[in-house]
């Protein structure tokens, strides 16, 4: 089990305000400021998704940086690798937009820039101490913690249960 911090989701706290999405897009913009990012071309895009379930549950979803990451195995151009901080990252320079990673990701969290033909996903904001989405979440539905630290408070494994069943 790694000692690196991960982004965990407490779905019961999410209000669906989408502030995380805005913060994410801004962090992944050129200018890093909302009011100017909004005028950038191409517009920056978010790597966080907030899904909705009947009963009005809101479910933030983002790259889990899986231990056994199907995308990492599947990449046909060598663009996907694991970083020093255990994040699974896509190197836009090497990505050729074949979308194989999109096809194998069971979470549906790899985005596509169709114009540039590049895949993108959560990179846990390498330039920041706390990822932008976590910092922005007004209800602390997103937390940045080590697995250990998080299970001490509350363990809601949204990440692993799916993948343990994935072959490999």
């Amino acid at each position: 089990m790694s000692n690196y911090k991960e982004i965990f989701v407490k779905t019961d706290k999410c209000t669906g305000c989408l502030t995380c999405k805005i913060a994410c897009a801004v962090e992944h913009s050129e200018t890093k400021s909302l009011f100017s990012a909004i005028r950038e071309s191409p517009r920056p895009v978010s790597r966080v998704y907030v899904e909705w379930l009947p009963g009005n549950a809101k479910v933030p979803v983002l790259c889990r940086h899986c231990e056994e990451a199907p995308c990492l195995n599947a990449c046909i151009s060598g663009a996907i690798s694991r970083s020093d901080t255990n994040a699974v990252i896509t190197d836009a320079g090497k990505c050729i937009g074949c979308w194989t990673c999109v096809m194998v990701c069971p979470y549906g969290v790899i985005g596509r820039d169709q114009t540039l033909a590049k895949a993108f996903r959560c990179d846990r904001c390498p330039d920041r101490e706390i990822p932008a989405c976590v910092g922005a979440c007004p209800t602390q539905a997103l937390v940045y913690e080590t697995v250990d630290g998080f299970s001490k408070t509350k363990r809601k494994t949204v990440s692993r249960e799916l993948l343990t069943r994935e072959g490999a």
Partner: peptide, 11 residues
């Protein structure tokens, strides 16, 4: 405590 403020409202 209010921070971050909602970007939708801000814009």
């Amino acid at each position: 405590q209010m921070l971050p403020q909602c970007g939708f409202g801000e814009t």
